[in-house]
Design a protein around this nucleic acid. Structure first.
Lengths: 194, 194, 194, 194
DNA sequence: TATGAATGAGGCTTCATTCAT
DNA sequence: AATGAATGAAGCCTCATTCAT
């Protein structure tokens, strides 16, 4: 007897369905990377070689799909967090690295910041889970930095997360040159005030 | 005695045209405020009680309309700059106020940051003029702050402008609470690092 | 026993889709006949009781639709060619009949000559296939007539086809009386020179 | 006292109005030659440096404008007829030249054949006058050729005119190569039959 | 469950012509 | 008489999403 699916899952999920789902996520990831998260759902389905219906069966809307893609690729971020932990660097250095990783992740796909931001407002968004995790991690690093006196005490993890999001969005403009891309995180770290 | 038409004055804009144009701008402003800058052009025309053609005669595309709306409401910002100058506060205080004003302005309408950002890349955008002015002003305040040693020397006005834009975008999410809205400019000013 | 699906038959077109497509073609045919080939795509969709999207799914552009309509009604022409062959008439009589049939076909719908003409220039047009077939057939009949010495040797099938097209266009004017309609092919056959 | 305008012309037509009219005709001619008769009325007005209203005051619709342009340039054709007469060539040669001239004239502007054809059906068209004149001339040449036994007797001038129109239309397709352009009038003269 | 057809609102734009100034 | 602004009906086409098969 196979491991029973947790709770009362009506059915053990057909193998091919699971395969399909994974396939879609992979394809979507590739297309997001190439054309941004605004690619038409149809084209994703077509690229994956499945019908639009199948796509929608697995992911009732774009947000869900994005969430799935992020989840599938989120581990990298979490691993990054672990790596930072392991590196045993100073708390501010750790936070710095984390924020940088966060920014990179947010820039992973053109247009990604938009739905990520939406998740902050829309409690029902499927991205909430992912976001929460990231915010929590941010909080954790921030907290450490604050306790060691390296970070301002009046900042919340969520605010820093939002700040990083805004920086990512700004850096994501078509013609952003290196300088622009550099300056955003720098401002986030030090502000303009001397 | 009225001023005689100078030389080959092409004929002053018709009164009704001017009225209409102003009307459209007003209506657009209202709709932008209510529904964001993405409202359909058609609906703006309808709300203004003019034909779509009239709208397009005055503003061949959305960017132009946004530019006009911003121009009509931009003076506030310039006035703000003057007011800051007059207040005679310290350079860093001045810059702080300016950035705050900038942020508020960028948040004026839902979705405004997007076209404003686009203007940075698209030299042909009708918003460049406005943006340039704002960037210049930012530069000016920043410069003063830098010379007085209150602002980091390695920042360009444009970067700060972009940073403010990103912050505005992030803070512009529907349910941004006061705290979030506060934190953005604060991060911009001081960053998280202590 | 029905034919088993061969290999990886992509799945036969859905019945309802086929029905819909056919319906659209029929409706389009009727509307072309009534209002000419310039009727708006939207109105065709509406008349067929389908959404604009459905229309565009089947026929991404007007040319495709026209091609489909012609195809559905083209067989008559091919049959006509066969009938002429079977009639066993003299080559010049055969060519004459063919050109007449061609002319009638080209006059089927108001405005049809235009896209047919366009297909001659635009290699990518979906009408090229049909046109090519017709030109080939024209060539065939012409060739026979030429070999039997009944047709001028310095004419190409394509030229004759184009001539017939021009005649059809000219004769296709709203109020063309019988005489006008008669004279066109006659000129094509004998010219004005005695 | 200037020559009184014929009939009871309400007013001797302002000089500037007359100048304007002529200007518009000239500009329209140029634009027709460059972009075809389908150029937007607005652009014609703009090019002429007059308001759309002025354009419409002189020519209430496109057909009228085309008529005026053709009239202004029609003399060439009539002169051609005279020249042919004077050349004292044989009737069939004369007709041949005339038809050629006709064809050239019809091809003067992209899209011209369309409104010219329309005039044949629409008795109220302002082009009727011009057309009638041309048809009459065609008739005259044809008649001479017929009387001298060089042209088929069962053709009417109008039919030949229509034939020439169709040929012009066919020859006017974008990619018409020299051969096509040659073949049309040739068919008109001799048909395909040997 | 997978498929892919169908929906249909909605976006943008053009231009012939009319009309207020 | 001249101006050029205003009209507004069409036209074309695209997707996100639903639903019949």
């Amino acid at each position: 007897m196979p491991t029973p699916p947790d709770q009362a899952a009506p059915r053990p999920t057909r193998t091919d369905a699971r395969r399909n789902r994974a396939l879609i996520v992979e394809v979507a990831e590739r297309m997001f990377a190439q054309e941004g998260v605004d690619v038409s759902m149809d084209s994703i389905a077509k690229s994956a070689g499945v019908g639009a219906g199948t796509l929608y069966r697995h992911f009732p809307n774009r947000a869900r799909l994005i969430a799935a893609v992020l989840e599938a690729h989120g581990p990298n971020l979490i691993e990054e967090a672990v790596a930072i932990d392991r590196a045993g660097v100073a708390p501010d250095e750790a936070l710095d690295r984390w924020v940088a990783a966060l920014g990179e992740w947010m820039c992973a796909y053109d247009g990604l910041p938009e739905p990520v931001r939406a998740a902050l407002s829309d409690g029902g968004s499927p991205l909430v889970a992912t976001c929460k995790q990231l915010i929590d991690t941010t909080e954790r690093f921030l907290d450490a930095a604050q306790r060691s006196g390296h970070a301002r005490a009046d900042i919340r993890g969520r605010d820093l997360y939002v700040g990083a999001l805004g920086a990512a969005w700004a850096a994501g403009m078509p013609s952003a040159d290196g300088t622009t891309r550099e300056s955003a995180p720098q401002l986030l770290r030090q502000g303009w005030q001397r």
